[in-house]
Computed example of a mutant assay.
Amino acid sequence: MYKIQLMSLARFASVMSMTIRNSSTLCAIVNKSCVFNNASSQFVKNYDFKQRIHTTPTINGYKVVISDSVPNYTYLSGVRQFFRYHCFLKYIYRGRGSLLYTYACDHLDYIGIMKNFKMADTYFSWFLITELHVWMLMVRLEAGNKAGVDMRKNVVTAMWKDAEMRKKKLGNFRGNDISKQMEELGHQFNAAIVGYDEGLLSDDQTLAGAIWRTFLEMKCDDPKLMEKMIIYIRKNIQMLDNIPVLSLINSAKVTWIDHRTC
C-alpha cells in the first residue's frame, strides 16, 4: 500500500514538474508575443498611412515591412468607389484615351516616316506606324496604376475604331470581309506587342529583330535603317518616362521626337 502511494506521489511530482516547465515556456512565448504586439501597435501609431510609401523599419529587433497595399477598405468605401468609377471616372478615362490617341497619332508625319524607312504608301504601313506609337504609349501608361491601365485600354480601343473607320473608307467592303481583316490585324498587333516588349526589356539586337520582322516586314537589308528606328524608339521611351503618368493623362498631349534627327 505504501509502495502504491509512493509511486502515485512520484508520478504526481513528475507531472507537476513537466507542467511547470511547459508553463514557463508558454509564459516566455506570451511575453515575446506581447513585446512584438506592443512594438507593432507603437509602429501603427507612429506610421502615417496617408503617405503610402515603402518603409522597412526595425523595432526592438523585429523587422516590419510595409508595402503600398495598406488595408484600409470598408464596405461603404468600396461601394462609393464602385459607383464613382462606373458613373464618373470610367467615362472621363474613355474621353481622355480618345484625346490622347488623337494628339499622339493624328499629328504624326506618316509620309515622312514611310519615305525615311522605305515603306510602301499603304493602309498596312499606316497601321504599322500607328501600332508602334500606340505601343510606346502603352508602355508608359502601364505604370500608372488604375488610371493608367484604364487609359491604356481606351487608347487601344480608339486605335481600333480609327483603323476600322479608315478601312471602310478605302472602298466597298462587305461586313464579313472587314471583320476578317480586322481580326488578322488583331493577331498581328498582339504579336508585335510581344516582340517590342521583349526587345525593350532585352538588348538592341532583340529590338532590331522585332523591328525587322514587324515594322520593316522582313524586307529591309539596310542595317542603318534599323539603327535609326532603335534610336527613335529609345529616345521616345525615355521622353515618355520623363513625363508623369498623371500629367500625361490630364494633358493628353504627346510631342514625339523627330525621326529625322535620329
Rank of each mutant, 00 (worst) to 15 (best):
residue 117 F to A: 08
residue 123 Y to H: 02
residue 40 S to D: 12
residue 148 G to E: 04
residue 42 Q to G: 03
residue 101 Y to H: 11
residue 44 V to T: 10
residue 237 I to D: 02
residue 142 E to W: 07
residue 48 D to L: 15
residue 129 I to K: 14
residue 207 L to C: 05
residue 155 V to K: 09
residue 256 W to G: 05
residue 177 D to V: 01
residue 71 P to W: 04
residue 91 Y to A: 09
residue 98 S to K: 14
residue 62 Y to C: 09
residue 185 L to D: 11
residue 156 V to G: 05
residue 197 D to E: 10
residue 185 L to P: 02
residue 238 Q to N: 09
residue 166 R to Q: 08
residue 79 V to I: 09
residue 130 T to D: 05
residue 69 S to N: 06
residue 175 G to A: 15
residue 9 L to I: 15
residue 142 E to T: 14
residue 122 T to R: 07
residue 74 T to C: 04
residue 129 I to H: 01
residue 122 T to Y: 13
residue 133 H to F: 08
residue 147 A to G: 07
residue 95 G to C: 11
residue 148 G to K: 07
residue 44 V to Y: 03
residue 194 V to S: 08
residue 242 N to C: 06
residue 191 A to P: 08
residue 74 T to F: 15
residue 4 I to A: 14
residue 150 D to V: 03
residue 128 L to I: 08
residue 140 R to V: 00
residue 112 G to A: 11
residue 103 Y to V: 01
residue 110 Y to K: 10
residue 110 Y to R: 06
residue 181 Q to V: 04
residue 199 G to A: 08
residue 176 N to Q: 09
residue 29 I to T: 11
residue 195 G to H: 15
residue 241 D to W: 06
residue 35 V to F: 03
residue 194 V to P: 03
residue 164 E to G: 02
residue 194 V to R: 06
residue 133 H to G: 01
residue 104 A to Q: 04
residue 92 I to N: 00
residue 248 L to D: 02
residue 149 V to A: 09
residue 162 D to G: 01
residue 54 H to V: 03
